[in-house]
């Protein structure tokens, strides 16, 4: 019942159901049913099934002639994952990737959004369309194209960089993570900066005018009015970037072709789950790795939201 009291105000004008209408409330489950069905199949069932698979093991009785039965194996697979250096290294790698990728992504997107929004930039629509282009290139295709660009024979990129004194091998163990960060930046900077730019459009013009009259310059206005105003959009961008970082799979999978010795079959947790399931046929371990990754992503997202919420509150207190 507490859910009723927590309902947002926009529903307040809906009249309370009369007894006659209460009998005809079948439309609510009917309207919810299609999505509920899809949600159960795509989210709830695999989570539950994965959990069951990871907690139970097939046990063969006797010599195995009498068939098998499922026996509770406890958290054996989870304990194993938490001691498996392949899983821990992979997790460390995607976390490092997130630590590099998320701040870079947000900073560059924010700068581009502010530039687009400032009175200086002309041809905004053209520029937005241009920046959004990579968003419509499937992730796998983007990875393929960039791997071609990274390959010395196929593109002049490495020799250009060599000409200005940067001798990079994009596939070496030291730079492969950076090569992947670059692919992700290329794909998502435009999307994120347009998202932030659109959010900036809701800053009230009178507030900006007041700031200008008070003598605030373009940069000061950006830092003290625009950035705080679009904090929710920044949180959304950051959240999706974090979730995306942990799922790293496609780009390393493609890079395996060119940097096979560096990008191993267990280079990220998703690659590990994939190879455990389809190369080793160890389904219960694959399920455990997948669920652990989902749990880490969920906890990190929640932490990010909480953290931003606290910063929000303390800055409001400082304002008052």
């Amino acid at each position: 019942m507490s859910a009723l009291t927590a309902s947002p105000p926009q529903a307040a004008s809906v009249p309370a159901p009369t007894r006659a209408r209460a009998r005809r409330r079948l439309h609510i489950p009917l309207l919810l049913a299609p999505f509920a069905l899809l949600f159960v199949i795509a989210f709830v069932a695999p989570l539950v099934y994965g959990l069951v698979l990871s907690l139970f093991r097939e046990r063969f009785t006797g010599l195995g002639w009498n068939g098998s039965h499922l026996a509770f194996a406890g958290f054996h697979d989870y304990a194993r994952a938490l001691q498996d250096s392949r899983f821990l290294d992979g997790l460390g790698r995607v976390l490092l990737y997130a630590v590099i990728d998320v701040p870079l992504m947000l900073a560059v997107s924010l700068v581009l959004a502010l530039l687009l929004d400032s009175a200086l930039t002309t041809a905004r629509r053209f520029f937005q369309a241009l920046l959004l282009l990579p968003h419509f290139v499937p992730g796998l295709i983007a990875a393929l194209i960039w791997v071609y660009l990274y390959t010395p024979g196929l593109s002049p990129l490495t020799s250009w960089l060599g000409d200005i004194g940067l001798h990079v091998n994009f596939f070496s163990s030291g730079s492969v993570l950076g090569s992947i960060v670059n692919i992700s930046l290329w794909q998502w900077i435009g999307y994120n900066s347009v998202l932030l730019y659109v959010a900036l459009q809701s800053v009230s013009p009178s507030v900006l005018e007041a700031a200008r009259l008070d003598g605030a310059g373009e940069i000061r206005t950006a830092l003290s009015i625009k950035v705080p105003h679009i904090r929710p959009a920044l949180v959304v961008s950051g959240l999706f970037t974090i979730i995306g970082s942990l799922q790293l799979f496609t780009e390393p999978k493609i890079l395996q072709g060119s940097a096979g010795s560096t990008v191993t079959a267990s280079w990220t947790p998703n690659l590990l789950a994939f190879s455990e399931a389809f190369n080793s046929n160890d389904y219960s371990y694959a399920a455990a790795v997948s669920l652990l990754l989902a749990a880490v992503a969920g906890v990190l997202s929640l932490l990010a939201m909480k953290l931003v919420g606290r910063v929000d509150r303390s800055s409001q207190e400082a304002d008052s």
Partner: peptide, 15 residues
């Protein structure tokens, strides 16, 4: 929304 899609792919396959 917060559950990473690829983390569910292997369990979905098993299901």
């Amino acid at each position: 929304v917060l559950v990473p899609g690829t983390a569910l792919a292997v369990p979905l396959y098993l299901l």
